[in-house]
Design a binder for these strands. Structure first.
Lengths: 242, 242
DNA sequence: TCAAAAGTGTTGAACATACACCCATGA
DNA sequence: TCATGGGTGTATGTTCAACACTTTTGA
């Protein structure tokens, strides 16, 4: 009754990953979320863009599968990797499924790439990056229900940034608080008050002063912080987004 | 590269469900969370208790599978049904897996049953209910990694109750606010100030005054409320659990 | 000495907790 | 009339957004 399952060829299990990185927008120049998509080279949805992913190997953990996809697609390691949702509805291939296409259940992960590692990212085959909020316009309709998945991932990222220190995942080892603020602003899509931001982050205890300062700025040199170990953390809320 | 998958007999896909209902504790009499478990009648883990579930049928949506499990196990309909997580690690059968046991990926849902419907629940075969927090003592070690899954589900429920109106799922159509408060107290495991609770709930806009009152109480008759439609809701926080 | 960003201080509004107190019913 | 829980009012403390203001650097 429990834990037994079908294993015929009608049902397939795949792991896909929504990979986010922060890059300047190609038009406005503002820092925004980008993600890589893969062009499908066979039916169904041949020629359309899809989330990177692949079949789950029988001897492979779910996260390992997501990690492998990331390496294959961008050549990087995820700085944050988290399960998003399992999508398995019968009609997830845009409302109807051709008779000869097997039914696919996808376990979707989302990943964040650090800014400094993203700089060294190498695009895999048939891979192209798009600004997350402009995917519909620039990539056209995505394969399967991947547009739904992407929207859900974006929503989750934006919600999570305000109550969890995931923004660290985008930042290098040491960083000024202003850089962190820019990450928050990019994800949330709105400006934050620098002084209140500083107080809130420091009150959380998620960052530690390294004692060092940045040099070469054309203004007062900011202190450098690094992310604090899991312990010694309190609570958190970013400017009214609780 | 995307959405293709293994479908051999080494990999199986199951849907399990953590089903919560509120019942008085059999020792203390206090309202607490209970859940039904199913005794396994075959290897592996024969004789041990497990979460109810079953294989995913090739032509069945994930939620439908969870709903079917619920009907089979308790004879009820879920009032709230939500995906919890997909568990798929290779070693999820308590650290090691016998060579002849196939590898199973479980998509786990959690469900809430309404108090009035729970009263009419009929136990399925090999089904027994346990207080959620006493499962380890009363049911012994659960099959597979089901103890981990249960703890995760409990944690999620307790977190979610303080920022989302899921408590409604336990309540009948019309209810006094005190009944709702008792639900919150049962889930959170601590007493809440009645007057502040009232104010907070009313401020959220998640309930509407029906204009009617309860009768037959040995004290001032309380107003009856019903849950508000999705629209006309504001923000929420229950007594410092943000 | 000026521009620009770092960083500090202060104020007023909103909100949460604690708790005093009144209300309406059955017994 | 009393006991019991429903329901209202209010004082106190905390938190947060807004913004004025000072500091420190390069140009």
């Amino acid at each position: 009754m429990t834990e037994r399952s079908i294993s015929g060829s009608q049902l397939e299990l795949a792991v896909s990953t929504v990979i986010f990185a922060l890059r300047p927008h190609h038009e406005t120049g503002e820092l925004t979320l980008w993600l890589p998509l893969v062009r499908r080279i066979r039916e169904p949805f041949q020629g359309q863009w899809a989330l990177p992913g692949g079949p789950l190997e029988p001897d492979e953990d779910l996260v390992d599968s997501a990690r492998a996809t990331l390496r294959r697609t961008t050549g990087t390691q995820p700085r944050h990797l988290e399960q998003l949702y399992a999508f398995g509805d019968l009609d997830r291939s845009t409302g109807h499924r051709p008779a000869d296409t097997p039914r696919v259940v996808s376990i979707v992960y989302w990943a964040l790439i650090r800014q400094d590692e993203d700089a060294g990212a190498i695009d895999g085959e048939n891979v192209e990056w798009f600004p997350a909020d402009d995917v519909a316009e620039e990539a056209g309709p995505l394969a399967f229900d991947h547009q739904v998945i992407l929207s859900y991932a974006l929503q989750r990222l934006r919600a999570k940034v305000s109550y969890s220190p995931i923004a660290h995942a985008f930042l290098p080892e040491e960083f000024p608080l202003a850089a962190m603020r820019r990450v928050y602003e990019a994800i949330l899509g709105r400006a934050l008050d620098p002084s209140n931001f500083r107080r809130q982050i420091l009150a959380q205890g998620t960052v530690v002063d390294t004692g060092r300062r940045m040099t070469g700025t054309s203004h007062r040199p900011p202190k450098l912080y690094r992310s604090a170990p899991e312990s010694s953390r309190y609570t958190l809320t970013i400017q009214g987004s609780a």
